[in-house]
Amino acid sequence: MDKVSAWYGEKLAIQEIVLDFEEHAVTGIIGPSGCGKSTLIRCLNRMHETIPKARVEGQVLLDGQDIYGLPAVSVRRRIGMVFQKPNPFPTMSIYENVAAGLRLNGERDRKKLDQAVLDSLKQAALWEEVKDSLDKSGASLSGGQQQRLCIARALAVRPEVLLMDEPCSALDPIATAKIEDLIFDLKKDYTLVIVTHNMQQAARVAETTAFMYLGKVVEVNNTRELFERPRESLTESYITGRFG
């Protein structure tokens, strides 16, 4: 992405961000709360502009095309997103939750749907736990299962990129470990961008990590480099826990 700035009303949230995301790899974005991580990731699939009075400038290139020149709907289908709090559709069954995206795209063939639901749930490492209760409500699952259901739902439409906005912040450590394992598996097929306020998590799952502060990217580097030999003193004081 190139020189992306975003505002909430008059308030500038992120400023002229330039970042590259590597294909089939995990990019982590860390930084103290309020630094613009979530805003940044929401600009990547045009979710930022769904908030009243919010606006975005700059370019976000996906395979060389500016996503702000494409219909938002198709952008969001190619770039999936998982949110901070699990948000399954409570009125739908587990099956319908996963199939929702495909149904939107007009897929009616029951066999194809079944297959896609199966694949996505397996990919999201949820299949074994829910295979006997596919018609139960999505809200009946535990928090960690709900989050994996949301991941399966995002995967079912076969996006190219998967954005994750602090996917584990509402979860307990065991559920978090499961999601992290999952992220590790998913990068074979997808390009992942994960926002987290948990530095250890970034260190564990991301190849590349970007550190943000006050709406700007302070430093981007190979994760190990960034944590072991930070170039900027700001980065260093953050990762050593002096603020944040």
Binding site: P71, V73, S74, L104, N105, G106
Partner: peptide, 8 residues
């Protein structure tokens, strides 16, 4: 494409 157009 026509599907998307129809949806829009």
């Amino acid at each position: 494409v026509d599907r998307d157009t129809r949806r829009r």
